[in-house]
Design a protein around this nucleic acid. Structure first.
Length: 329
DNA sequence: GGGCAGTGGACTCGTGACTG
DNA sequence: CAGTCACGAGTCCACTGCCC
């Protein structure tokens, strides 16, 4: 999550050249690209098949004017509004300290009493707090004591995290003069537009494994809805949610999924896709697939090898991040 | 019973920002 | 500026069930 950050300057350049007023970001993830599009003046249709990215996009991209005031922040961080203890008890011995889990229950009891717009912002800050507080940000392991290495993010309590994260989310809220929206669902369920610009950042299919986002982020997904309508697999050690199939996670189904996505947005003006060189399919195959719906396909390779690395070996390996741009000539 | 695919969960190591 | 340290569209392996 958030790994598109270093690509943002390159994407900004591409988007600026496209122009237009409407844009879609159907794999919104951390939400930074949707927010970039908003900053560049677009009316953004943002979506993701997970709930927590949708909440974040609603709070940052769709939201033009709602923030949390000091009183509301104090209320979320203050005494619990009810006696719920689902998180404290369910994840006992698995994630965070007793105090941290108690805070999550207590914060949610107060968040439940906020109006919808403020809820989204508060939940976003809570989700980001939990991600930062968990070593490596993933919930595939349960013994966090192995990672007591002194970094600041692991020292802060979740309550301290929340105060910092909510201040950050408050600070990004602004009105770009247009009405953007964020919805939760598969890419194929997103309204096909047409849009002036469609940005696609699908999961990458690794050559030797699947790509299971729920396995990594089940806790954040559950937290974003207080596990309402979410079914925990209680026989799993990590108490994770059921794996949800997506054709983008497997090398066998990724090509068909990409092609169907391109066809879904075929009537939109420009399709921009980012993809890594160490995933499948390879770049030439993606050019073929995108070429089926767009007469012109340009590829920009962003080589993010280090110019400033201090190690001698730093120049040894390079991973290319590709930006494919499909247009109608 | 051997080969294969899928699953669950622990865990590597190269990178590059940070620190003093 | 050199070395440390935290991070990750990640990797591996044991196990299971299914097929022949």
């Amino acid at each position: 999550m958030g790994s598109k950050y270093r690509l943002l300057p390159h994407l900004a350049e591409v988007f600026a050249a496209v122009g237009g007023t409407t844009a879609a970001d159907p794999f919104s993830g951390s939400g930074v690209v949707s927010y970039l599009l908003k900053c560049q003046g677009y009316e953004v249709t943002s979506s993701d098949y997970l709930n927590f990215p949708t909440v974040i996009a609603r709070a940052t991209t769709a939201n033009s004017d709602v923030t949390l005031g000091d009183a509301e922040i104090d209320a979320v961080c203050g005494p619990a509004a009810d006696d719920r203890d689902f998180i404290r008890t369910t994840f006992d011995g698995l994630y965070f300290t007793e105090d941290d889990r108690t805070f999550l229950d207590s914060a949610w009891s107060n968040i439940d009493r906020l109006p919808a717009g403020q809820r989204d912002l508060a939940i976003s800050a809570l989700v980001l707090s939990a991600a930062r507080r968990q070593p490596r940000g993933v919930f595939t392991f349960t013994d966090a004591t192995r990672y007591t290495d002194g970094r600041r993010d692991l020292k802060l309590s979740l309550r301290e995290h929340f105060r910092e994260r909510i201040a950050e989310y408050n600070a990004v809220v602004f009105d770009n003069g247009r009405t953007s929206q964020a919805v939760c669902g598969e890419v194929f369920d997103v309204a096909p537009g047409p849009y002036d610009l469609v940005y696609l950042d699908p999961p990458y299919a690794p050559p030797a494994d699947d790509n299971d986002y729920i396995k990594r982020y089940h806790f954040l997904e559950g937290l974003s809805r207080y596990w309402q309508d979410a079914t925990i697999m209680h026989d799993t050690k990590t108490k994770k949610l059921a794996k949800r199939f997506t054709p983008f996670a497997y090398k066998r189904t990724i090509e068909d999924a990409l092609l169907r996505t391109f066809e879904h947005f075929a009537d939109s003006g420009t399709i921009v896709l980012s993809y890594s060189s160490n995933a499948v399919p390879a770049a030439d195959r993606i050019i073929e697939l995108l070429g089926k719906v767009k007469s012109s396909v340009e590829v920009r390779a962003v080589d993010h090898r280090y110019s400033f690395g201090t190690h001698v070996t730093a120049a040894r390996r390079s991973v290319q991040e590709y930006i494919f741009i499909g247009r109608d000539e």
